[in-house]
């Protein structure tokens, strides 16, 4: 049993309810024990930092301090939300890198009877623990309804693989973790060139035109590459691409229809869990057609391997083997 201190983050109870529900649905299969951090507070998203630095970091650090107190057979804090993950990680890192910041934050925490020593907990994202602790083999062994034929565009968004102070990800620009997780479910994964590009973040609120353009690029790229569905690991990305896709279409006079769901939702479905329980139906850009592709189609027959072709043109360099934090080397087929 892998145990984690769980920091859900505000959106899990609201806009990202599908994420929470699907996570709960697959948790038993993944033998994951989640112990919620008692009385956690909002991480401040990207907003508090713009207003006032010390309160912003103190707000985040209260969670770290609570987690450190609650350590109970584990010192790993798992956060499924990208912004939360980044804020927690950044606070932990900067408090150590700039001792002056650490001191000030602790001075503030002391006013609430708390203290946090940077480095006393590990902060990790859900995808990271699934890949590196639970392992793709376990995931594969739980698949009863492979997603054969479903063309998935893996979309990580920006804040998890970057800045990645703790070097937990295989790459900043084209990490392969989410791709490999989707492949383990049997999906056909497209090499999505914008997998870590920005969804617009809070610009949907304060500068919608900037955001619409970023959303359009992502949705257009996924469609151009022939994806049936995008999967994400970030509530903000899901919200922006799902809830604002309509507005984006209106703005540009386009007609995109690109459903985007959480990766946990596809895991749940592949594990044989009922789509409704996996949070399907909560998305505004319906994933019905994408679901139909796996629901209706019988698993495809094994295609015969094509005869080896004579090399044509100039040879390509071999891809650089990527390494997961756990030391596993990712094999490209």
């Amino acid at each position: 049993m892998n145990k984690y201190l769980f920091y859900p983050g505000c959106s899990m109870e609201g806009s990202a309810r599908a994420y929470y529900e699907s996570l709960k649905a697959i948790q038993p299969a993944l033998t994951m024990e989640l112990e919620e951090i008692e009385d956690w507070n909002c991480c401040g998203a990207t907003e508090y930092l713009s207003i006032n630095l010390i309160p912003a970091y103190s707000l985040i650090a209260r969670n770290l301090a609570l987690a450190a107190q609650q350590k109970n057979g584990t010192d790993t804090v798992m956060a499924p939300c990208s912004a939360c993950y980044l804020n927690l990680e950044k606070a932990d890192y900067y408090m150590a890198e700039r001792p002056a910041l650490g001191e000030k934050v602790n001075e503030a925490l002391a006013a609430g009877g708390l203290h946090y020593e940077p480095g006393s907990v590990q902060i990790r994202h859900l995808v990271d623990v699934i890949i590196n602790d639970i392992g793709l083999e376990t995931v594969k062994s739980k698949v009863v309804r492979p997603l054969t034929g479903l063309r998935v565009a893996p979309y990580l968004g920006c804040m998890v693989p970057r800045p990645d102070f703790a070097k937990r990800w295989s790459d900043h620009e084209h990490p392969s973790e989410l791709d490999d997780l989707m492949k383990a479910l049997g999906a056909e994964v497209i090499d999505f060139p914008m997998k870590t590009s920005c969804c617009g973040g809070h610009m949907t609120q304060i500068g919608p035109e900037t955001a619409y353009e970023l959303i359009r690029r992502l949705v257009a790229a996924a469609e151009e590459q022939g994806a049936d569905i995008m999967v994400t690991m970030c509530p903000m990305c899901q919200m922006n691409l799902d809830a604002y896709q309509g507005e984006t279409n209106r703005h540009f006079g386009t007609n995109y229809h690109m459903p985007i769901v959480f990766f946990t939702q596809l895991m749940a479905v592949a594990f044989g869990i009922d789509p409704k329980q996996a949070g399907f139906g909560l998305e505004l850009v319906s994933a019905k057609d994408a679901l139909a592709r796996i629901g209706l189609k019988a698993p495809e027959e094994q295609k015969p391997t094509p005869a080896r072709k004579k090399p044509e043109g100039l040879p390509m360099p071999k891809p650089l083997p990527k390494k997961y934090a756990s030391g596993q080397t990712v094999v490209e087929e």
């Binding site: 790459d171 620009e173 084209h174 390509m316 360099p317 071999k318 891809p319």
Partner: peptide, 18 residues
Amino acid sequence: DARRVTNYGYGRLPNVFT
């Protein structure tokens, strides 16, 4: 090793050369 600068796509995008 140009593959290390993943944002330049060497090894992924065929028409990027060293």
